[in-house]
Design a protein around this nucleic acid. Structure first.
Length: 175
DNA sequence: AAGTGCTGCAACCGCAGTAAT
DNA sequence: CATTACTGCGGTTGCAGCACT
């Protein structure tokens, strides 16, 4: 319904960011602060759309962004939070200082998801991967948890002691 | 050494939410 | 209250690098 595009596509760059573009963006945000992303590219002399600038800044250029491998503690926390919140990556990211929603989302899809599947855990429901899972205790427990938090608004009161049980005995629950 | 497939990461796209008018 | 403008979020894609044959 008449929504204007976020940028004039004919005048914007796409793809990987060049070092010079990064430097321009960093310099501009340092001087003027975040915000008003729509007008930022023009003001900073960048041939990028505002959304692209925002994404680049938040995910890679912000000084407090933590890069590198996820720790076991971070992995555990992500799994626990995902079981409660689902794909609310921004909310999950808010509990992990220095991590961004995009990074967590990528990490989940490339690493954690696969590990859970290999352990027989459904990464979507956090229950066992089976056709007839309704009778398993683990699944019932998770169902109860979800019913107790139907709207996910209690994220500030998350029970981070939640444990994800596997249908078969396992020596360790950590990934 | 070359070709092919796989993996992981960076970035884009489209929609939803919300503030402003 | 309706419409518009903008930001933020989540899903998806493209591609470079690596491993394997």
């Amino acid at each position: 319904m008449g929504r204007t595009p976020c940028c004039e596509k004919g005048h914007t760059n796409k793809g990987a960011w060049a070092r010079e573009e990064d430097e321009r963006l960093i310099a501009y945000v340092r001087a003027h602060g975040e915000g008003c992303w729509r007008s930022l590219p023009k003001a900073a002399g960048l041939l990028r759309c505002g959304k692209s600038c925002r994404l680049r800044w938040i995910n890679y250029l912000r000084p407090d962004v933590k890069r590198g491998n996820f720790t076991d503690e971070e992995n555990d926390l992500i799994i626990k939070l995902h079981s409660l919140l689902g794909n609310k990556w921004s909310k999950i990211a808010a509990t992990l200082p220095g991590r961004t929603d995009n990074e967590i989302k990528n990490h989940w899809n490339t690493h954690i998801k696969r590990k859970l599947v290999s352990k027989g855990v459904d990464p979507t429901t956090h229950g066992p991967i089976k056709e007839h899972v309704s009778s398993t205790k683990t699944n019932n427990e998770l169902t109860c948890i979800n019913q107790n938090n139907p709207e996910g608004e209690k994220s500030q009161e998350l029970n981070l002691e939640l444990r994800i049980s596997l249908p078969v005995p396992s020596s360790s629950t950590s990934i």
